[in-house]
Design a protein around this nucleic acid. Structure first.
Length: 338
DNA sequence: AAGATTCTCAACCGCACCAAG
DNA sequence: TCTTGGTGCGGTTGAGAATCT
């Protein structure tokens, strides 16, 4: 990508920053550095410039399909924690990943009929929305309409391939959805819409067990070799914790009291999550500050939850997070060293 | 060819955390 | 305990490039 006018203007500053910072391998007091060099930038800006652009190990070429696959999987697992995602992509910064997500990947997913926020098919989201409205018939109609509208198939499809297809059709409009061809092997991940009725888009399971991502441990290493990392129901069952879904909370909150038969299961999951949280908090977790996450989640999600649900909400968030780290154990390791 | 629109991405902003004094 | 400075992070902005009409 050509991007240089602004860089050209400050190339002298860049050279100063580079020479001063690189001596310390990116560390040191950049406020002092900036003052010493007589730069117009503040220390923070110098650090940003260094970290996001000048660092010699950074890649400045386009993202590969393997990198895109990995970003999508990690985003599905941990959300917009760009720094963590970037740590898994040597030579990429959090800003790079964030920009690429916002400018490319979100659009691609949307064109594929997948909500980039929840990583669920739009059909399920609308069906869930209809469920919140309290009318199953209505939701069924909505889901059916959408299914007809976007021609989504329930069989597994190859995300990476679809991305390449979309790339080859730059002018494709959102109203002309891609054709998803089912494949047997070598898929990045699968989406199944309903365990017992694979072709039923309109009635997702209330428990939210379907449609949630499963990220196998091998998936990261495997992504570069395009081997299987499945989103499959079978693999989900191997996980001890029911996958987390925002929708589940919205639905349960909307239909207090909770659904029949869910309570005991939820309590078991809660206990398991608590145990995991204790293990991880007492363990070797280094790359993520769990307290910070708790604080941020508590403040950023400002919708009201009842006293009976806020605990389960937080615990489920933590449970989901733990599940993520179980699926991506290397996230708990030291970040990539530059 | 030219103006309008869209896209890209470096930089900025604000908040939070942490360590030192 | 409070203040201050450094740092990390995620969301947003805006200038320039690319594309469209």
């Amino acid at each position: 990508m050509v991007k240089s006018p602004c860089c050209e203007k400050i190339s002298v500053e860049d050279a100063k920053i580079h020479s001063l910072v690189s001596k310390n391998n990116g560390s040191g007091n950049l406020t002092f550095v900036s003052k010493k060099a007589g730069l117009k930038r503040c220390g923070k800006s110098c650090r940003l410039r260094w970290n996001n652009y000048l660092r010699p190990d950074l890649k400045h070429d386009n993202f590969t399909s393997q990198e895109e696959d990995l970003i999508i999987k990690l985003h599905a697992a941990i959300g917009s924690r760009w720094s963590i995602i970037a740590q898994q992509l040597p030579g990429r910064t959090d800003n790079d990943v964030k920009n690429h997500w916002n400018t490319k990947l979100k659009k691609k997913l949307s064109q594929m009929g997948i909500d980039p926020v929840t990583h669920k098919p739009f059909s399920k989201l609308i069906a869930d929305y209809g469920k919140i409205g309290g009318s199953e018939k209505h939701s069924t109609q909505i889901g059916s309409d959408l299914k007809n509208a976007i021609h989504l198939k329930s069989e597994p499809y190859q995300l990476s391939q679809e991305f390449r297809n979309i790339d080859s059709q730059p002018n494709q409009s959102p109203t002309s959805p891609p054709k998803f061809e089912p494949i047997e092997k070598n898929f990045l991940f699968n989406i199944t819409h309903c365990d017992n009725h694979p072709t039923d888009f309109s009635m997702p399971k209330v428990s939210g067990a379907s449609n949630c991502i499963n990220l196998e441990n091998e998936s990261i290493q495997a992504s570069s070799s395009s081997t299987s990392s499945s989103y499959s129901t079978a693999a989900q069952e191997a996980l001890p914790v029911t996958p987390f879904s925002w929708n589940d909370f919205l639905l349960e909150d909307a239909f207090e009291p909770s659904f029949d038969g869910q309570e005991h299961e939820t309590m078991d999951e809660l206990s398991f999550s608590k145990e995991l949280v204790c293990q991880i908090e007492n363990g070797t977790r280094q790359s993520l500050n769990i307290k910070e996450v708790r604080s941020k989640q508590a403040t950023k999600n400002d919708f009201q939850v009842s006293s009976s649900t806020d605990i389960s909400f937080v615990e489920a968030m933590l449970g989901q997070e733990n599940e993520t780290f179980l699926s991506f154990p290397h996230l708990m390791e030291e970040p990539f060293n530059y």
